[in-house]
Amino acid sequence: MSQKFIVDDSFWEIFPEVKIAFLTAHNVDNHDTGQVPATLLSTANETAANHWVPNDPISKNAVIQDWRNAFQQFKTKKGARCAVESLLKRAKNGKGVGNINPVVDIYNSVSLEWAFPVAAEDMDQIQGNIHLTVAQGGEPFRPIGEDEVETALPGEVIYHDAHDVISRCWAWRDSARVEATEDSKNLLFYMENVNPERQDDHAQAVQALQQRLKDYLGLDTTYTLVTKEHPTITFAD
């Protein structure tokens, strides 16, 4: 049975101009054998400085303001922020974003350099269709690194499949069940843009992600831009 990625009308009613890059990659070898140079992340941590003024708080960053404004349009867990804010904050504070595994390091490098959130999920763990939608409330979610199950709030923007929530508060935290691990073989990626004025930057970030996956992991990816006019795609037959 085919599987689809579907952005529901409830989402488009809040965010009609959002564009979502959706990519898939197959036959992945995500074991770290040194194929991703250490300089990839270190350079990305340095390049991230292009997105802030040194003495200003991270909240003054235009990209962060875009996402904070977006998060004000729906119900969120207290303190939830877009994942890209956390990455930029680590780089700004001098801690830097460290290595996890080749796939995550690659998409984190893109996220740091272009300031878009990027997520990767293990396609083989996805059950049924994926929906980007507004939660009814009570949908279960177990975040990466946690044992306890949380539940989504009514009115919260979530990604979910037929089993449970795979990303809370839109682009905040991902599910442990579908995270991209060293043993993941087939992956799907999504990268969201909330600002229409950044469409060119978004396209460049997608191109960079595809190129780095090709250069370092030998992966050919399929790419579709999901919009209000094109809200549904099939990612597995």
Rank of each mutant, 00 (worst) to 15 (best):
S2Y: 06
K89I: 08
L41Q: 11
I233W: 00
T39W: 02
Q207F: 01
Y107S: 08
W172T: 10
D220E: 11
V104E: 09
A44Y: 04
T222C: 08
N30L: 09
T232Y: 03
N129C: 10
E113P: 01
W114I: 01
D161H: 07
Y223Q: 06
G79M: 07
D8A: 13
G128D: 15
Q210L: 02
P196E: 10
D124C: 03
T234F: 00
L23Y: 02
P16F: 06
A80G: 08
E13S: 12
N186E: 15
Q72T: 13
L188C: 12
I130K: 04
R142V: 14
T133I: 02
R212D: 03
W170N: 03
Q73N: 13
W170P: 00
A25L: 09
K75G: 00
D56A: 15
I130V: 14
A176R: 13
R168F: 02
P37V: 15
D220N: 11
H163C: 09
K78R: 10
N129G: 07
N186P: 07
Q211V: 04
T151Y: 01
A38Q: 14
V206K: 04
N186C: 12
D183W: 05
E121Y: 09
T47Y: 07
D201M: 09
L112G: 05
P154K: 14
A120T: 11
